[in-house]
Design a protein around this nucleic acid. Structure first.
Lengths: 222, 222
DNA sequence: GATATTAGCGGACTAGAGTCCACTTGTCAA
DNA sequence: TTGACAAGTGGACTCTAGTCCGCTAATATC
């Protein structure tokens, strides 16, 4: 059976049909993103206010908020290319592993490691995306949210692993694993806030986190 | 070997030496907490502002903030008695289980279940405590934070389980478990925000969460 | 009871998020 | 080209969190 993860789950800001954005609007969008990137580079993400960004970009607050509903959305846009590249890269790698007949649990192992490092490397932006006043359901159901395809991918891999007999799901055995919940649990472990706590307050290294998490997942295979 | 969790890890607001609080100050503290409880009961936690609470309590904002640095602290105070009771109850239960020679993993199983239900039952307040602009290290190191004793307890149980040979720690075996990290992971799974997402956006029941998490932990003994 | 000390008080104030709306300007069809 | 009209703009405005500080009054001492 073939791995059926579609190639482009993300409908990125760039790919997304933005049917009619006027030239001036597009220019402002770019100016805003440039300004934000600059200010973030100088001062870090958290202390920069939306007003700062508007001022630096030379636009009014109204314009800023017309483009980006809040700081989280702006951060998501800034991360869009990287996120897209990460998704393409990791999905390609997973397909490659499937082609080489590597186990789905091995694929999960790879994906979790990649995810730990990606989130770690983009912690401040990812935290901001996380803190955004997103209506909650969006986080889980909005295709633009990184959370979305990541959880789907984890779910998918767990499902395949179960089909392949690498793990025992609940459906087959009352003592088996609840794969949906398991995916949700892994996403909680990879959440930017969680990772920030572990990295900054508990002084774990990304390697330790990745290793600990995967060690843990490895127990599931028995 | 005896279970050595101290009886009173929490230094609760009530127990905490508040050496010199004037009569009027104490009365105001009570008035504020009563007002908050009332308003939360009517409108829910999130939509009530600090100004609302001050007004309802008949005090100025300065007074409110003198007592409670932010909404999270106020919510923590409101939950203090329940939290204390929960802690006392669950630690007593764990001691009882130890006395009956039940395994430490069974104790962990019990504790996780109790925690899922406690957090679920107090979700709005717990979320508010969570969202508070706590300087991050505090969350992990401040004895007043629920997080603190909960993680310590989980850590303790895992440590005992390892000593008792119920699980294999990293120290004994390079393929073993990183118990510190594991405790941190379980806390992430029991985090109010995580639980809210699962309960409200993904429509899991508390029972499913508890079952899924414990099933998962059970694999570790495997 | 008078006085000194100092915790406590409350509301004006600052700062950031996000909204609104009167005005401007690109775009497109004629 | 031109005119109509939707899209876009900017900054004043509102709302909330949280701070500050001059005034008030409880308590401790004599």
């Amino acid at each position: 059976m073939e791995n059926s993860i579609p190639l482009n789950l993300i409908i990125s800001e760039d790919n997304l049909a933005r049917p009619s954005e006027r030239k001036d609007a597009a220019a402002n969008r770019q100016a805003i993103m440039d300004a934000a990137r600059d200010l973030f580079a100088i001062h870090g993400v958290a202390p920069v206010t939306m007003a700062d960004i508007a001022k630096e970009a030379g636009v009014g607050k109204g314009t800023l908020y017309r483009r980006f509903a809040h700081k989280g959305e702006l951060c998501l846009a800034l991360l869009d290319k990287k996120l897209q590249a990460f998704q393409d890269g990791s999905l390609a790698h997973l397909r490659q592993m499937t082609a080489e007949h590597q186990s789905y649990m091995a694929q999960l192992d790879y994906f979790l490691d990649a995810l730990v490092h990606f989130v770690t490397e983009n912690l401040p932006l990812m935290c901001e995306i996380d803190n955004a006043p997103t209506p909650l359901e969006n986080l889980v159901h909005d295709v633009n949210q990184p959370h979305y395809w990541q959880e789907i991918t984890v779910r998918h891999l767990l499902g395949r692993a179960a089909q392949a007999g690498e793990i025992t799901p609940l459906i087959q055995n009352p003592a088996g694993l609840d794969l949906e919940y398991l995916a949700s649990l892994l996403m909680a472990a990879l959440n930017a806030r969680t990772l920030r706590l572990q990295l900054e307050a508990q002084n774990y290294t990304p390697e330790r986190i990745s290793h600990g998490l995967r060690q843990f997942v490895r127990q599931l295979g028995g």
